[in-house]
Simulated scan of single mutants.
Amino acid sequence: MVTLPPPPNPPGYPGAAPWGPGVGAPPPPPKKNNTPLILGLIAGVVVLCLIGLCVGGLVYNIVNDDGSPSAGPSLSTQQTGRPAPSDRYSPPEVVPTTEAALPAPAAVGDCVSVDVKGAFLGLGNCNGSRGTYRVLSVDRAQGTCSDPDGPWITTGGYRLCLELYLVRNYCYKLPTETDFAVPATKCKDKGTVHIVDIVPGGANGDKCTQDYKWNHWYRFTHPTVVYCVMRY
């Protein structure tokens, strides 16, 4: 039996045990150390989580900065201690209001039109075509008139103190203790008078005109005046 010489050592593997019959296989290569790689991965995950938390908080603040309700305090609330916008809301303060006064229906010196019971019909004029009373005072407090026995009406929250104001050559129904003076719907109707002359402060008909025909006179007070008339 021929015995072969042992093969030479493999290249690049000096000092290895000689190979031969009965000699074991070469030892396995050494295991790699993965600890640095694992630590690096963990550190990367931690950094990514921190970045995500900061970005999420910033977005939350931007979205909720308009005062919309949120489920909990914002990041700015946690950092500054100030209440979130929704926590700062309070109902608007109720401002007391007062009702504005209506304008007076007439001014001192105006002539006004009324019906026979004294209901205000509106402004007239003092030339005889509309209106039988002239306004002496306008009182929103509706106190007594300076002449408590004179005529007055209330309208629009005001008291108007009046004086009888009739005009020559116009026809009227004269006032009574219960009725106000009003224009005649038709002159010469029964119960109407045609004003012929006016005597301010007169006591009777002695000073009535002699230039025109008249058949009766009436004296009124508040103010004192005599009307010389044709009575029908």
Rank of each mutant, 00 (worst) to 15 (best):
I62M: 14
P223Y: 02
L39F: 11
S76C: 15
C126R: 03
D66F: 01
S146E: 15
Y170E: 07
Y60L: 10
Y133D: 01
Y170H: 11
Y158A: 00
V135P: 00
R130C: 09
I153G: 04
G150R: 07
D211Y: 15
G131F: 00
L162Y: 04
P28M: 03
P200A: 05
G20Y: 03
Q210T: 14
M1A: 12
K213R: 13
Q79Y: 13
Y232M: 09
T192S: 10
I153S: 07
T35R: 07
L4H: 12
T224R: 13
S76I: 12
P28S: 03
I153T: 05
G22M: 07
P6M: 12
Y172F: 03
D189P: 04
G57H: 07
Y133V: 02
M1D: 15
V94R: 06
Y165I: 06
A17S: 09
Y60V: 08
P30D: 05
A141G: 14
K190A: 13
C126G: 00
T144H: 06
G128F: 01
P183E: 11
K186P: 03
Q142T: 05
V108Q: 09
G143M: 03
V138L: 06
G118A: 07
N127L: 15
N127P: 04
L58W: 11
P183G: 10
M230Y: 04
V225A: 06
S146R: 13
P151N: 05
D189W: 14
L41S: 14
N34T: 13
R159H: 00
P5M: 14
H222A: 10
L75T: 12
M230F: 10
T154E: 15
P83W: 00
V2T: 12
V46Q: 05
M1N: 12
C145E: 03
D149Q: 13
P83E: 03
N169R: 12
G52Q: 09
P73E: 05
P11Y: 04
G44A: 12
T176G: 09
G128V: 01
E177K: 13
P73C: 05
S74E: 02
G109S: 03
K117H: 09
Y232C: 06
C208F: 08
H194A: 04
T80D: 11
I38Q: 09
H216C: 09
V2A: 15
G124D: 03
Y133L: 02
N34M: 13
G24H: 13
A107L: 10
V108C: 10
A101H: 02
G15N: 14
G202M: 02
P11R: 08
A17P: 14
S129G: 11
G124T: 01
V193H: 05
S70N: 08
P6R: 14
P28Q: 01
T80G: 01
G40A: 13
P223D: 08
L121C: 00
T98S: 11
G156W: 01
L123M: 10
C161S: 06
I153D: 02
V108N: 01
T178R: 11
K117T: 15
G118K: 06
G131M: 02
C145Q: 00
G12D: 14
T77Q: 09
Q142L: 02
V167N: 02
C54S: 15
A107Q: 13
T144V: 13
T80Y: 02
S129Q: 08
V167Q: 07
C208R: 06
S90W: 06
C171R: 00
A184Q: 01
C171F: 06
Q79R: 04
A104S: 04
P18A: 14
L75E: 12
L102M: 10
A71C: 09
C49S: 11
G57V: 12
K207V: 06
N127V: 13
N125W: 07
